[in-house]
């Protein structure tokens, strides 16, 4: 097992005039055996970060340390890591067994041990009966498990996952999430998992890194990220529907943005007066979209109501009150939490 430490990591492409910097000095310490999810919108640099850890992208500046080795100049195969790719990257002409065994064969592991390791991984992933099949004869979920098996048999210090669930349908994705959690409990291997899906991030992560535009916005447990978002970006990116951000909330100082999550607004007899614009019924709950007209312009707000709350009529005026302990304050200029 090993910890990973990222020290002021920078990635830039091109040279001379056309330099394009995609990661701006990112530092983070990932503990031994920890499961960390990197989440962010597409193009935020999260995959690039993972590929730098993997050794598939060069590191422009800074250091990446796995265990106690600086790996900047090591080949991917020398870093003692394994990776699960988004499209699985299975060798189409090899059987499931050969796919899993290929790296071990190159590393000249004795045949008997290869057999034992592959069989063990196949048992964990319930792939035993498919070992002789080719990838094209497997379903998407099975292929995904082969990709994980290939990572497991190498018994690496670190697992890297590059959006491994994005090609599965919703039901299978939820199921595989649970399997990955279980696997991590059993093997306890340090894992770095990249996704753009906040639900995946919240459910899988012990700690999560939220990235935007090549910058780490927050690094914390899912609870922290939800309860105390460090920036307005995190506040709107994590949580669905996103947090309401009010630029002109009553009682707040100028230059302060007030945030309140839809689930922390209650419909009350008096309070902020909103005109109901639209209502969405989701079953167990209901989303009410309201417009709050006041002096310096309209504020749009979403309120999340339990199903037992009476349905307001469209166009009517309702009153809402935020739960005082759930208000967040951000600096309007920097977007940082105050």
């Amino acid at each position: 097992m090993a910890s990973i430490s990222l020290k002021n990591v920078v990635k830039r492409y091109g040279n001379g005039k056309s330099v394009n910097q995609v990661i701006h000095g990112l530092s983070a310490e990932i503990g031994d055996g920890e499961f960390v999810v990197v989440v962010g919108p597409s193009g935020c640099g999260k995959s690039t970060l993972l590929r730098m850890v993997a050794g598939l992208e060069e590191i422009s500046e800074g250091q990446i340390i796995i265990g106690n080795r600086v790996v900047n100049d090591l080949e991917p195969s020398e870093r003692d890591i394994a990776m699960v790719f988004q499209n699985y990257a299975l060798y189409p002409h090899m059987s499931v067994f050969d796919n899993m065994a290929y790296g071990l064969k190159i590393a000249k592991v004795p045949a008997a041990e290869i057999r034992a390791r592959v069989d063990k991984a196949a048992a964990i992933l319930q792939l035993g009966q498919f070992l002789e099949r080719k990838p094209r004869q497997l379903s998407g979920g099975q292929r995904q498990r082969v990709a994980m098996g290939r990572a497991i048999v190498r018994q690496p210090q670190v697992f890297l996952f590059d959006e491994p669930l994005s090609n599965l349908d919703a039901k299978l994705r939820a199921h595989t999430r649970l399997e990955i959690q279980k696997l991590h409990r059993e093997l306890g291997i340090t894992s770095l998992f990249v996704t753009h899906d906040q639900v995946e991030a919240m459910t899988l992560a012990q700690r999560m890194i939220v990235m935007n535009d090549g910058v780490m916005e927050q690094f914390g447990t899912p609870e922290e990220v939800y309860a105390r978002p460090a920036t307005t970006f995190v506040a709107t990116f994590i949580g669905s529907p996103p947090m309401n951000l009010l630029k002109n909330a009553p009682g707040a100082d100028a230059g302060t943005i007030v945030g309140i999550r839809p689930e922390h607004l209650d419909i009350t007899a008096d309070g902020w007066a909103l005109v109901v614009d639209a209502i969405e019924t989701l079953g167990a709950e209901r989303l009410v979209y309201g417009r709050w007209a006041h002096g310096s312009g309209d504020e749009l707000m979403t309120i999340r109501c339990e199903e037992n709350v009476p349905v307001p009529t469209l166009g009517s005026t309702i009153h809402v009150t935020p739960r005082a302990d759930r208000l967040h304050y951000f600096d309007a200029a920097t977007g940082k939490r105050k």
Partner: peptide
Amino acid sequence: ELLEAARMDGAGPIRFFKDVLLPL
């Protein structure tokens, strides 16, 4: 990603050519 996977698996250029590219 096949090339990346092969590099992860420790395959050098000749090995990748022989084991992956040629069969494909």
